[in-house]
Design a protein around this nucleic acid. Structure first.
Length: 262
DNA sequence: ATGACTCAGGAACTGAGA
């Protein structure tokens, strides 16, 4: 089973790319972030034509996440527990049934948190604390679980072409990385790092200042696996070539193959 | 070089992104 994540930076702007990429990579489950539209405005039909079930948690203008799955999406939940006042559409969770059990997938768009001296940074840290509580709870189920999405976290210096440039940034501050490690230390596996020792594995290149041409990237889109998923890890991929397409998202898709028969 | 692009919203710009 192939599970993918991609921050598309507007699904309506990226519809042709999304369809072309799905035909290439053919994942069973896809987590999309930054769809930037309301739920009703999501272009479902092109994905349904490709055989996907679609569940959307949108909002006007910003944020927004969606799940695509060739298997039916069950027990779908919108929003991350722990703050009833959080209006931002950044989280969607579902289960798919497979032979002999289920696979649980959480699709998340973690807050950016910049500038760090504003209320945006505490919101990010609070979201990360809520995510930790969520993971702690779901890990008790001992299921194959994948937390996939745009975490807006550079886990380590090796995950940035120019780490010094990110020193004071909400994506790389010590407290941000500490919160990410707390998540990992619950027993989750960073799929990309577990499956590859290659250098320069980035998932985002800024639109500005020729970042793509200079390979000035960062790795902020992640797939975190529960032990039951990590035990079945076969491969990972970063579909970097998509960043060179005309009018691309600033993020590229990341996927993992798990030895789980659909 | 607190800028360089690219989105949405809404009709000239601002806010957000990372």
């Amino acid at each position: 089973m192939r599970i993918a994540t991609w921050n598309v930076n507007s699904i309506r702007q990226r519809l042709d790319h999304a369809v072309a990429w799905l035909k290439e990579t053919d994942p069973e489950v896809v987590c999309l972030q930054e769809i930037k539209c309301q739920t009703e405005a999501f272009p479902r039909e092109p994905f349904e034509s490709l055989g996907y079930n679609v569940s959307v948690h949108g909002q006007k203008g910003f944020n927004g996440v969606a799940l695509l799955s060739k298997l039916p999406l069950e027990d779908v939940t919108h929003g991350l527990a722990g703050d009833d006042g959080d209006e931002q559409a950044r989280f969607i969770e579902a289960v798919v049934s497979v032979k002999g059990g289920v696979v649980r997938v959480a699709c998340l768009y973690l807050p950016n948190g910049n500038p760090p001296d504003t209320e945006k940074y505490p919101y990010k840290l609070s979201f990360m604390a809520r995510l930790k509580a969520f993971a702690q709870d779901r890990l008790k189920l001992e299921e194959p679980l994948v937390l996939a999405g745009d975490f807006n976290v550079i886990p380590a210096p090796a995950d940035a072409a120019d780490p010094a440039a990110w020193a004071g940034d909400a994506l790389f501050l010590p407290r941000t990385r500490q919160a990410f490690r707390e998540l990992i230390h619950l027993g989750l596996t960073d799929a990309v790092r577990a499956a590859s020792d290659a250098s320069r594995l980035y998932t985002f290149w800024d639109y500005q200042a020729g970042a793509w041409q200079r390979d000035n990237g960062i790795r902020i889109d992640h797939l975190l696996l529960s032990p039951q998923a990590a035990d079945r890890l076969i491969a990972v991929g970063i579909d970097k070539h998509v960043r060179a397409w005309e009018k691309p998202s600033d993020h590229v898709p990341v996927w993992t193959d798990l030895a789980i028969a659909a």
